[in-house]
Design a protein around this nucleic acid. Structure first.
Lengths: 205, 205
DNA sequence: ACGATACGAGACGGGGCCGTATCGTAAAGC
DNA sequence: GCTTTACGATACGGCCCCGTCTCGTATCGT
């Protein structure tokens, strides 16, 4: 502790330009959205593309990993659906449609694809992405399904594995967005997924 | 055409060692399985890791892209389930369990993750993977579902979008394998997915 | 005005990969 | 035996990135 006060003391000299942080982070997201993989990114290339001195980047982040960690936290997932109507069908459709709309955003889908590849080689990066984005979405759905089981809107025996139910809800949209980027994500996709899931594929006598 | 016969004439000099081809391709698959992304792979590193001269690799493939194309075709997906019992539930379980077992193989899942990231930057590579692996699996499932619609084992109105049904069948397993490598893929996963899909989540009165 | 820090630009030595070429050796046909 | 091609090893010039450092300039607190 070298500071003399609780407010981290007074900085002297010219203050840092906060806009530079955002420009660099935005540049990284843009490069990823344009098809660059994590391995393609270089500190030098990022600085060049951002129109920023290389030293300026190194002044903020010690290396590519630290920069990418900040990029991930900057992907602000706005609180994924806090409201809850109580009607399972309605709430499920809202939740899935949120993921569907997110998957339509080129930045988010490209970022997800990049992170998925990096989970082995940079587990720290993957953990951050998982905790920030993946886990947040799952939590929302799992609690939604849990309440539906207790309120009798879902067969009780299915409540034994909410994890599986969650995967069955998000799986279709994610699989389409991840593995078939050319396939459409039509407006009524969420609605149709939910209706089929709730009613089942088999004829109801 | 410089050959003088239909059998590509007679090669002179020392013949190529076919084992080298396999060694190199296996090395690439191993590196990918060990966490390397496509961008991390280098012709020099591959040759070094394979215990092979760099010139020997270049003698067979003009560059990394060509080598990777051969790697993809070497991932022989054995004919995905040609048999068909006629019982939708049974056949679906077999098909999904095939994908589940494939996802448990480290090589295959790592390769899929890598390809998913490369789809933007190297569309040719992605197309090969998609046609070889993804499309083959989908075809199997879509025709399975199609027959089930005509035989009345699936509600007729769902037959309007077999593509969606296919995504709902493969989605859960793929989502779990892709986005949650730490989550288990238990033996009875396919069975439970199919049962929930066929019966629906809602209580049947 | 002055010292301190930030900025864009770019030089710098070091290192890795690129694709090619050159070794000496090995394995085939003639 | 001679030619031809393949092989592992390695050297080569070129390129790009690394992380640090030095410029000249700009912007803050004092």
């Amino acid at each position: 502790m070298t500071t003399n006060g609780p407010a981290t003391a007074a900085p002297r000299g010219r203050p840092r330009n906060a806009a530079v942080d955002r420009t660099v982070i935005d540049t990284v997201l843009r490069l990823i959205a344009d098809g660059a993989s994590i391995g393609d990114l270089t500190m030098e290339g990022i600085a060049r593309e951002a129109g920023v001195g290389k030293a300026t980047v190194y002044r903020r982040w010690p290396g590519k990993d630290a920069l990418l960690l900040d990029v991930l936290t900057a992907v602000d997932s706005p609180p994924p659906l806090g409201c809850r109507s109580g009607d399972l069908r309605h709430d499920l459709i809202l939740a899935i449609d949120y993921i569907r709309r997110r998957s339509l955003a080129k930045r988010e889908s490209a970022l997800m694809r990049s992170m998925v590849t990096q989970m082995e080689s940079s587990p720290e990066l993957w953990k951050r992405y998982h905790d920030t984005v993946v886990a947040a979405r799952r939590r929302m759905l799992t609690s939604l399904l849990e309440d539906a089981v207790t309120s009798g809107q879902i067969r009780p025996e299915l409540g034994a594995d909410l994890d599986l139910l969650t995967d069955m809800v998000v799986g279709p949209v994610l699989a389409r967005a991840t593995l078939r980027p050319d396939a459409p994500l039509p407006d009524d996709l969420a609605e149709r997924v939910v209706d089929t899931l709730l009613e089942g594929m088999r004829p109801r006598d």
